[in-house]
Design a protein around this nucleic acid. Structure first.
Lengths: 190, 190
DNA sequence: GCGCTAATTAGATTATAATCTAATTAGATA
DNA sequence: TATCTAATTAGATTATAATCTAATTAGCGC
């Protein structure tokens, strides 16, 4: 749910230690012990906070020999921070809940009893309904590598390459350096 | 402290109920019972959350007859949300802590034993040091009415009008509709 | 002043989470 | 394989805070 993601982001940021970590990483990557040292806390504590920061995807890590360096994802931080200003008005419209009569009909026609996609409709409008349907479970703001996207699509159809391409072409998601992410709903096709 | 304000903002926002309240108020003001009804919670609970939202200044209230309407301060919300993206790098430089040798000397020369300002230096550079010194205790992001500003200045000097004008002219703070607020540090004079 | 309505405060309960020590895991190097 | 270092996990302790009921306060209208 969209709401939970925003709540979780702020809950995570709303901690002195974690903001201090963010502040440190803003200057450049650091390894765990270094952070612990600078903040006067024990390594397990830092580990604890870093996993939380990784969960919301604003910190990522890269290993070099024995030590793991932690990086701040500044772009993501900025995008997430702004989301609170964009939420609501009409009480959190759940884009993924397809209850609209027409849509339900189209989906019933093209999804079989096992939840698999029979075929992708040629008609643009119907195709978009199916594509949107198959996005369920993917989260806004989260990043996925190609393998994850493929696996997700295979729930519905074995030809993940085609459908993945359709996702991008229809602007449901975008790709950069092999990393996929959902586009904001404003960019989705009508 | 600057850090605490940011932590507190996110700690406050990082709660599902409070975000739902923000989402509701985005469409327009509501009174307490209405919020309680829409969210399926008891009035005391709403009261509890509203005081928190008022504390960080993103909700304010206006009474009409017997009922109090709560308003969302959208501008403030947006400004606060962005602050996290601007913090740090060099570990939270405390602009109010004047330890720099030259500054200390100037301050000793113009502040008497009781902490009062003897006179405002004519020399621009020295004047700025004193003005900045007299900002201590005012918080970034908080709004003050003229009376509060005057009282603050009177700690240092009886002629609050002159000093208040200097604050604004030097871009330490700005005034809008009789409300004063500190400018972001980037706007402060060198 | 009296009663009405809406809001807040007090106090208890329960859930969440920050931090630590001790034990364990993961990788690298020799 | 044995050993070293850095990171994580487990588990306990302690602090914080969300929510409720019951009691209280604040302001309006009669």
């Amino acid at each position: 749910m969209q709401l939970d993601r925003i709540v979780n982001f702020h809950k995570t940021i709303g901690d002195k230690t974690r903001i201090r970590i963010i502040s440190l990483l803003k200057e450049g990557p650091l390894h765990g012990q270094a952070i612990a040292g600078k903040l006067g806390l024990k390594p397990p504590t830092i580990s604890h906070h870093l996993t939380k920061l990784k969960q919301i995807d604003i910190v990522y890590q890269r290993r070099d020999k024995n030590t793991i360096y932690f990086y701040l994802n500044k772009d993501k931080l900025e995008r997430m921070a702004l989301e609170i200003t964009r939420i609501g008005g009409n009480e959190m419209s759940e884009k993924f809940e397809i209850t609209d009569g027409e849509k339900v009909k189209v989906i019933r026609n093209f999804i079989d009893g096992n939840g698999k996609l029979k075929s992708l409709p040629a008609q643009r409008k119907k195709k978009l309904i199916l594509l949107e349907y198959m996005l369920r479970g993917l989260e806004h703001g989260k990043t996925y590598n190609e393998k994850e996207i493929n696996e997700h699509i295979q729930q519905y159809h074995q030809d993940f390459a085609t459908i993945r391409r359709e996702f991008v072409m229809a602007h449901f998601m975008y790709r950069q350096d092999g990393i996929y992410e959902l586009n904001p709903v404003e960019m989705w096709p009508v």
